[in-house]
Design a protein around this nucleic acid. Structure first.
Length: 292
DNA sequence: ATAGAGACCTGTGTGC
DNA sequence: TGCACACAGGTCTCTA
């Protein structure tokens, strides 16, 4: 599920419940996700107030009153759902007890009665508590590139990273050191929108004098637009997200390229059809006719 | 240095 | 119906 827009949507959905809330207790239902939980994980969260929530790339950050930061990465299949006070979700009629999914790995109980449940079937997610004053120096963050929505991302930045690289454009865009938070779906969509082939080598998007080509400028615009649109779409589903039954916002975007193998290219002026190839072990969807 | 493959896990969908 | 297989939104580690 989670690329940057999904993580941002989750963050926005959690803000009303978590900001200024105090953690009553934390329950780990297994000793690890992708990595083992650190020593005293629950103890170091218990009793702490959450000052605010932020996001960096695909990481969700809970800034705590003691200066620590709870960092959560949702991996491929992680999600967080909110349970309102007094609501026992999926309780069985006979026992009245809450029936938890075997993939509910971490339960956060708040003082105001809300419960947050971290669910992750594939367990590629991970979390840790880092020092708030220098969290950006943590290995998870130190090498991250600029946010696609921020001012630090520019065509000249991309040109400097793309120059001399023989890596395909698709592969380099997935590199979190280049742009933080881009994932497989939105890379495919951005390349489709910019009419750039995912197989095109990165260096061919840079002019000989080192300045960005027109195509690279177009790619930057496409990345910005795609991410902004996806965040808006996610934002519109936040009301679903907070439903007491735990149903998440669905992010049911219709994609132009991703997952559209065999379908006609969505560009009105193009008569091609979407093809699927594998690059660096990941599926790539693109239109060989209009993406050059 | 850097690019690709494999690994980590479980669930789902497809075809036989 | 049962089974085998391919594939899935991420990222770390190893190898060439």
């Amino acid at each position: 599920m989670p690329e940057l827009p999904e993580v941002e949507t989750i963050r926005r959905g959690l803000v009303p419940v978590l900001e200024n809330a105090r953690i009553r207790s934390v329950q780990l239902r297994r000793p690890d996700l992708r990595f083992p939980f650190p020593q005293n994980f629950e103890k170091n969260l218990t009793g702490k107030r959450i000052l605010h929530l932020s996001r960096r790339a695909k990481y969700l950050l809970w800034h705590l009153e003691d200066g620590g930061v709870l960092v959560i990465h949702l991996g491929m299949s992680g999600s967080i759902r909110i349970q309102a006070p007094g609501v026992s979700e999926r309780s069985t009629r006979q026992t009245g007890r809450t029936k938890r999914s075997v993939h509910d790995h971490v339960i956060f109980h708040l003082h105001d009665g809300h419960t947050l449940i971290y669910n992750d079937p594939r367990r590629f997610g991970y979390m840790n508590i880092v020092n708030g004053s220098d969290w950006t120096d943590h290995p998870w963050f130190a090498d991250l590139g600029p946010e696609p929505t921020g001012n630090d991302l520019s065509a000249s930045h991309l040109a400097s990273v793309f120059a001399d690289r023989k890596t395909p454009a698709k592969t380099i865009l997935l590199d979190q050191k280049v742009i933080a938070g881009m994932g497989n779906i939105y890379v495919c969509e951005a390349l489709w929108r910019a009419r750039i082939s995912p197989r095109r080598l990165a260096r061919t998007l840079v002019r000989k004098d080192g300045r960005p080509t027109v195509a690279l400028e177009r790619l930057l615009g496409a990345i910005r637009t795609i991410i902004a649109e996806a965040i808006d779409a996610g934002g519109s589903s936040i009301s679903d997200y907070t439903l007491a039954d735990g149903s998440m916002g669905r992010f049911q975007h219709t994609f132009s390229a991703y997952g559209q193998e065999g379908c006609p290219c969505a560009r009105p002026t193009c008569s091609g059809s979407i093809r699927r190839i594998v690059q660096s072990g990941r599926s790539t969807f693109y239109c060989p006719r209009c993406q050059r």
